[in-house]
Design a protein around this nucleic acid. Sequence first.
DNA 1: GAGATTAACTTGGTCGGCCAAGAAATACGC
DNA 2: GCGTATTTCTTGGCCGACCAAGTTAATCTC
Lengths: 178, 178
Amino acid sequence: MKADTGTAGTAQDDPACSGQLPLAAQNGPVSLLVSRVARLHRIAAGKALKGLGLYPGQEFLMMHLWDAGPVRQSELIKAVDLDPSTVTKMLQRLEQAGHVRRRPDPDDRRAVLVEATDSSCGLLTEVQRAWGELEGHTLAGLDADERAQLARLLGRVEGNLCKETADCPEEARRAALR
Amino acid sequence: MKADTGTAGTAQDDPACSGQLPLAAQNGPVSLLVSRVARLHRIAAGKALKGLGLYPGQEFLMMHLWDAGPVRQSELIKAVDLDPSTVTKMLQRLEQAGHVRRRPDPDDRRAVLVEATDSSCGLLTEVQRAWGELEGHTLAGLDADERAQLARLLGRVEGNLCKETADCPEEARRAALR
DNA sequence: GAGATTAACTTGGTCGGCCAAGAAATACGC
DNA sequence: GCGTATTTCTTGGCCGACCAAGTTAATCTC
């Protein structure tokens, strides 16, 4: 209904007009930026982790397991703040991949204890390295001040979205400490 | 196999030490922040869009269609920079939901022309509103300077990750203009 | 202690994403 | 022209993520 490109179909006869921002997103340029950065970042992380036999998302589960040792699944769920069913399925796959071990909790027969396997601990180092590289790519060209600024602003944004979503671990953590 | 928390298992007897950041992510605190913000932002967007009959992600497709009018599917794919199969399936669902119409391109019998339906154009306004609200929540409490800073820094980050991923529309757009 | 409630998973379904492989039509090379 | 790419889209499979509904076990109530 506009943009009758006509010519080639390459659709970029929009020279310096309207700033190539979708009309529907004019009200939220930063949100659009966040979405794009999010996607690119996830792709980059996925690429780095693929070589390690991890799918994007599983890293966070493993990180918590590496840090906390054997935990009840319910606690893991709270920690990563995901849907229980999501965690169940991820753990099934991680278990089959040999990165995780699960056993029933003797003290509570409906609960399950989860821990990282020894073999997975080799991954820890590599994930740390990959995560560091990712950080490097992400922040390339930013000096220390800018990095601190970005971290600070993202922290504020996280707080904002947490309050909105209301199920943020941040708030829970803070509340638990009082 | 570390963090012999021992005591309760609540795993937060870590008072003011190491800053509650996963060990594996110590090398990438900003990356972790980005991931968390990304997820929260997507959830918030999804919530806002759910009432409109859109699933998270479909917005971007619709935005391009609203802006560009009837386009070939291949162009849509380049615009949103998604996998062709992803777009195919999303369009099938959007078509069944009545938000999109598809017809074969008379000039190229393997191509498909896609356009937003009239009924979907009512959504445009609501998506704009929702997107504006989302922006509001996201940036609540940030003054104009901070917002500009955040946008600028996110732009830089996007550029960085684009170069890495190499298939960013940004670069392509810029390259096409030279 | 029997019954209702809550907590801790699991299963099935759906959607957004990706990859790999295929089918169909166009473009290219000769 | 004919055969070979190349483009365009589709299908199937997999994974992360959600919701809804169900199962089993603990807990709370009386």
